[in-house]
Design a protein around this nucleic acid. Structure first.
Length: 271
DNA sequence: ACTGGCTCCTGAGGGC
DNA sequence: TGCCCTCAGGAGCCAG
């Protein structure tokens, strides 16, 4: 699944293609996604215009006329693409938004993605309301990060991936940020000195920015909106490199589990 | 207030 | 070739 840099890359590519277009129809082929696609959507959307496309964490927010919005999350395997209205549907394409010149389609084999609607301020939506600050924006201050994490018993990697603490950091970038910070992923938050937490704060932002510059990473399912893969993979230092030598010290990268997620780290560099 | 475990689903890849 | 097992980038929910 796409993490923040991938979702932001999609947003940037998609925004100019859909902004200003009027929705002609929503076709739903599979309404059983992470949450059921609301039955009212197909009636409510036609005639509304897309005003803009925003991102919050890993959520995309399509702003519509009439003070409404569409909320899209890609889950683990969701992919958006633009297609001609007559292009045949692929397997696992669950819905399409027909616009004036193109159709926006979602393909998602695992169906962990979601399509919901709301009105008023998107920030008040139940799924967005509890999200922590955006890691690349000013609200994610050093003070906030340290005060939120310094008393916690949970593994620092789990905390970094907790959207309520900071929005949009997933498994790949948590692994990478921890390696660059020299911090063991399973170290409890409260057993980290301030200086080390500060380093992690900075490295999290650095890694996300670098990935963004590369157009995101590509594992199995993520593609940019034009179907081409992201370029960041080549810069992974630990993710997916279990058993390979650490690029910093040569020791073999270990793979363990933190929570239910795969964790990669260098036992020498990360303590 | 936190923590850890479970859950939704399909597909890919490894071992035999 | 085929079968079975494990694992996958998310994250809300629940019990303890």
């Amino acid at each position: 699944m796409p993490e923040l840099p991938e979702v932001e890359t999609i947003r940037r590519a998609l925004a100019p293609q859909v902004a200003g277009q009027t929705i002609l129809a929503l076709d739903v082929l599979q309404l059983h996604l992470r949450f059921p696609v609301p039955q009212t959507l197909a009636q409510d959307l036609p005639g509304r215009k897309i005003l803009g496309l925003e991102r919050r964490g890993k959520y995309l927010v399509f702003r519509l006329t009439g003070d409404r919005y569409l909320l899209v999350h890609l889950g683990m395997s969701g992919r958006l693409r633009l297609a001609g209205p007559e292009t045949p549907l692929l397997a696992h394409e669950h819905w399409q938004l027909r616009l004036e010149t193109v159709a926006l389609r979602l393909r998602d084999p695992r169906r962990f993605s979601l399509l919901l609607e709301g009105s008023g301020s998107p920030g008040a939506h139940p799924l967005l309301r509890r999200l922590g600050p955006e890691p690349l924006e000013a609200q994610f201050t050093e003070t906030y990060w340290i005060e939120t994490v310094r008393h916690r018993k949970a593994a620092i990697k789990t905390l970094l991936m907790d959207g309520r603490i900071v929005a949009g950091v997933g498994n790949i970038y948590a692994n990478e940020a921890l390696h660059r910070s020299g911090i063991h992923p399973n170290r409890p938050g409260r057993r980290l000195a301030k200086a080390r937490l500060l380093r992690l704060h900075a490295m999290t932002r650095t890694v996300l920015l670098e990935a963004l510059d590369s157009g995101g990473s590509t594992l199995r399912d993520y593609r940019k909106i034009d179907g081409t893969p992201g370029e960041f993979n080549s810069v992974f230092r630990v993710y997916g490199r279990g058993g390979a030598p650490c690029l910093a010290c040569g020791h073999l990268i270990r793979q363990i589990r933190t929570g239910q997620r795969s964790t990669f780290y260098c036992p020498v560099c990360q303590t």
